[in-house]
């Protein structure tokens, strides 16, 4: 709350000092914009830095000065995690689940969105309504019977038992994001492709998929990160610790090593690294993809 009023107070100073025009002409902006941005960024990343830097400290350092910096820097925690089979096993499980979920969602959602966006039949509108209704029901409400269903299919304690439901629950968001992209492909393009002897499916394969890449990237990233971070479904489905994905692994590790805080922090920061890197590389695409979805 204090942050809020401070932002307002200094922002109004900013208005008096220089208006909108000055800031839009001067690429460097005003110092107050920088100051506020700096505060915002610090709030967002200091807790994350705390986790990463904490991994470079010893337990006694953390106990005597909880808010301090590493002094001296200790690499043993990270080394121990990197040399543990548990961490790599969980990383591989998370990667398998994340990639297969991403591929499944992107492929199925592209196909379904193509029908919704380009086939002008009533069934398409009904399908769109079905998926947008699905957006309202995240996994939580169905988790108990879903778990029983997965168990009855013999998929409990298997990675497939995570991937299939995650694809199903990822579809609504993906369809909602992809449909505006596919709708915005001009009809003339389709007609031209038809004249050149392309079938509708050929048009889908040769034109639609390449043209909808920004949307596909957004969907892919959001799905992968969602799967990477998923906690509730693995908690229900996986019981054997060799099948654990990283979120479950982090939780198990932190309850087993609750006295070894530094080790927990090292494990935690290595667990968040892949999703963070993946996201940083592709983050520009997300804003573009969301812009399309919001406008549509």
């Amino acid at each position: 709350m204090a942050r809020h009023t401070a932002a307002q107070a200094s922002a109004s100073k900013y208005t008096k000092a220089n208006g909108y025009r000055r800031s839009s002409k001067n690429p460097w902006g005003s110092p107050i914009v920088y100051l506020l941005s700096l505060i915002l960024v610090l709030i967002c990343i200091v807790p994350v830095l705390y986790i990463i830097l904490g991994g470079f400290r010893s337990n006694s350092q953390i106990t005597t000065d909880p808010a301090g910096l590493p002094h001296p820097w200790i690499f043993a925690n990270y080394e121990a995690v990197i040399h543990s089979d548990i961490f790599w096993g969980e990383l591989v499980n998370s990667l398998i689940v994340g990639i297969l979920t991403m591929v499944g969602v992107v492929v199925l959602a592209l196909m379904a969105s193509f029908v919704i966006a380009r086939y002008h039949i009533r069934y398409a509108a009904a399908m769109y309504a079905l998926f947008s209704a699905g957006l309202m029901f995240p996994m939580t409400v169905g988790i108990t019977p879903l778990y029983l269903l997965i168990r009855n299919l013999g998929l409990s304690n298997s990675l497939a038992g995570l991937i299939l439901p995650q694809i199903a629950f990822g579809l609504p968001q993906a369809v909602i994001i992809l449909v505006p992209f596919l709708q915005s492909i001009p009809n003339e393009l389709e007609e031209a492709a038809m004249l050149d002897g392309c079938s509708r499916l050929g048009f889908f394969w040769r034109m639609v998929i390449p043209l909808s890449m920004p949307g596909v990237a957004t969907v892919g990233i959001l799905t992968f990160v969602g799967s990477w971070n998923g906690y509730m479904l693995p908690l229900f489905v996986l019981s054997d610790s060799s099948k654990y994905t990283l979120p479950l692994g982090v939780q198990m590790f932190s309850s087993e090593h609750s006295v070894d805080t530094a080790q927990v922090l090292a494990f935690t920061s290595l667990a968040m690294l892949p999703a963070l890197i993946f996201f940083t590389i592709f983050q520009k695409k997300i804003v573009g993809g969301l812009t399309g979805a919001v406008k549509g």
């Binding site: 960024v41 967002c44 807790p47 990477w228 979120p247 939780q251 922090l265 996201f279």
Partner: peptide
């Protein structure tokens, strides 16, 4: 800055909770 403010959103709930 836009990338950095998205960092908490990308980190999993388990890690946010533990931290």
């Amino acid at each position: 800055i836009r990338t950095l403010i998205f960092v908490p959103y990308v980190i999993s709930e388990v890690i946010v909770g533990t931290g």
